[in-house]
C-alpha cells in the first residue's frame, strides 16, 4: 500500500485547488472585475449560509424537497424492483413489457412535465410522478439485468433443496441480483434529485428548487448562490451515504468475483 501516508501530496493539491479558486473569485469581486450583482463574493455567500443555518431557515425547504424525493424514490424503486423480478424471471412478462419500456425509457423525463401538469396540476402528486418516472427505469433495467445474470447453478441448488417459486426469488434471486439493483438505485438517486429540483423550479411552492428560482426572480442573488451550495452539499451527502450503505451490504460481491 503506497497510499498509507495520512495526506498525500495529490490530496493536498486537490483540496487546495477549490480554495484557491474561491480566493481568486473573492479577489475578482473585490476589485470590481466581476459584477457583484451577478456573482457575489464567496465570503458574502458564506455569510448568507451562516444566516440560513443559524436562523433555522434550512429545514422547511430541505424537508419539503427531501419528502418529495423520498416518497417518489421509495415507491418507484419498490415497483421497479417488483416488475424487474417478474420480467427477469419470466419470458412472457418480459416480452409483454419490453416494447413499452423501450419506448418510455429513453424519453428525457423533464419533457413529461408539461403533460403531467395538464393532468395532475402543479401539486405534489405531479412532482412525485415525474420523479418516480425518472427513478423507475434505471432501477427496472438494472434489476432485470441482475436477475437474468443470476447463476442457474444457484437456482437449481435451491430447487434440489426443495425451494420453489417465491422462496427462490426471496432467498436466492433477489440477494444475488442485489449488486445490480443497487447500481440502479444509485443512478436513480442522482436522477431523482435532478428531477425534484427541476419540478420545483417549474411548479414549486417551497422546496429548494423553488427557492433558487424565486431568489433569482427577486434579485436575491447571494441567497440564490447559498441555496445552490446547499443543493450541492445535499447531492454529495446523499451519494456518499448511498455508497457507504452499498459497501456495507454488498461486501461479498466484489470479493467473491475476485476469486471466481
Amino acid at each position: 500500500m503506497l497510499h498509507r501516508l495520512p495526506v498525500s501530496p495529490g490530496r493536498i493539491a486537490a483540496v487546495l485547488l477549490p480554495v484557491l479558486l474561491l480566493l481568486a473569485l473573492e479577489q475578482a469581486v473585490d476589485s470590481g472585475a466581476v459584477r457583484r450583482a451577478l456573482i457575489p463574493a464567496p465570503s458574502d455567500v458564506w455569510g448568507e449560509l451562516v444566516y440560513i443555518l443559524q436562523g433555522g431557515h434550512l429545514w422547511a425547504p430541505l424537508g419539503k424537497t427531501l419528502y418529495l424525493l423520498a416518497v417518489a424514490y421509495g415507491c418507484a424503486s419498490v415497483l421497479a424492483i417488483g416488475l424487474g423480478l417478474l420480467m427477469g424471471r419470466s419470458r412472457a412478462v418480459y416480452n409483454l413489457f419490453e416494447p413499452l419500456v423501450e419506448v418510455i425509457r429513453p424519453l428525457p423525463k423533464p419533457a413529461l412535465l408539461p403533460p403531467l401538469i395538464l393532468f395532475l396540476g402543479i401539486g405534489d402528486t405531479m412532482k412525485m410522478t415525474v420523479v418516480g418516472l425518472a427513478v423507475f427505469f434505471p432501477v427496472l433495467i438494472n434489476t432485470v439485468q441482475g436477475v437474468r445474470g443470476v447463476d442457474p447453478v444457484l437456482v437449481e441448488t435451491a430447487r434440489t433443496f426443495g425451494y420453489s417459486g417465491g422462496r427462490i426469488v426471496s432467498r436466492v434471486v433477489l440477494p444475488a441480483a442485489l449488486p445490480f439493483i443497487f447500481t440502479g438505485l444509485r443512478i436513480a438517486l442522482g436522477l431523482g434529485l435532478i428531477l425534484v429540483v427541476v419540478a420545483e423550479m417549474l411548479a414549486g411552492t417551497g422546496g429548494i428548487g423553488f427557492l433558487i428560482v424565486d431568489m433569482q426572480r427577486t434579485f436575491q442573488v447571494t441567497s440564490m448562490y447559498a441555496w445552490l451550495v446547499i443543493l450541492a452539499v445535499l447531492g454529495f451527502l446523499l451519494n456518499l451515504g448511498f455508497e457507504r450503505l452499498e459497501a456495507r451490504l454488498m461486501f461479498w460481491s466484489r470479493q467473491s468475483e475476485g476469486r471466481a
Binding site: D151, V153, L154, T157, P175, W252, S253, S256, R259
Partner: peptide
C-alpha cells in the same frame, strides 16, 4: 461447479 452453488452472501 461447487463454488457457484454456494451463496456468497
Amino acid at each position: 461447479q461447487y463454488t457457484r452453488s454456494l451463496l456468497p452472501w
